[in-house]
């Protein structure tokens, strides 16, 4: 057991962790942040995506102990003061079906728009290619991201 601290969604949190505890499990089972989901346990599907020091990361592939002193943001954190424009357009355009991929998808799209406010269709596709969705065929998700960038010209 080691005591670590990290900033989770803007709040400093202290926790004792075993060296082999996975960040995803700690967030879900011990921190009450349930938005990151376990989809594949192997870093491939993107359902467990969180922002680690402002970059998307697969929380199922990270030991919690590695995040000592770091900053973590989950979907709960980005919508603390209301829905972001991206969340709003995803809601309005009904982009999700089962919704299990949504938290990871939203964080990946948020990261993209932070780096590149006017991405091409291809750039959106590439940015989201690490977030698997089995329901939608992706088109509504990509269209909504692109429409948002047009709105914000």
């Amino acid at each position: 057991m080691k005591k670590i601290s990290f900033i989770l969604n803007g709040e400093k949190r202290f926790i004792h962790v075993e060296p082999n505890e996975i960040l995803l499990d700690v967030l879900r089972d011990r921190m009450g942040t349930k938005s990151p989901k376990c989809g594949c346990d192997s870093g491939d599907c993107g359902a467990c995506t969180v922002m680690l020091n402002s970059k998307t990361a697969r929380s199922c592939m990270i030991f919690a102990i590695e995040t000592d002193g770091q900053e973590i943001v989950t979907l709960e954190g980005i919508s603390k003061s209301g829905l972001t424009p991206l969340q709003k357009i995803f809601l309005e355009q009904n982009v999700f079906q089962c919704g299990y991929c949504a938290p990871g998808m939203i964080l990946s799209a948020t990261e993209l728009l932070g780096k590149n406010p006017h991405p091409s269709r291809y750039e959106v596709q590439e940015a989201l290619a690490g977030n698997l969705c089995r329901c939608t065929g992706y088109t509504p998700i990509i269209d909504a991201v692109l429409e948002l960038t047009k709105k914000q010209v």
């Binding site: 879900r28 349930k34 938005s35 989901k37 969340q87 809601l91 355009q93 919704g99």
Partner: peptide, 22 residues
């Protein structure tokens, strides 16, 4: 008038939709 989306959409986009493991 906007309410033509999925009944769970508001939960989906905020990560609050509850699945078994949640």
């Amino acid at each position: 008038d906007r309410n033509n989306h999925h009944e769970s959409a508001a939960y989906h986009v905020t990560g609050t939709a509850v699945y078994i493991d949640d």
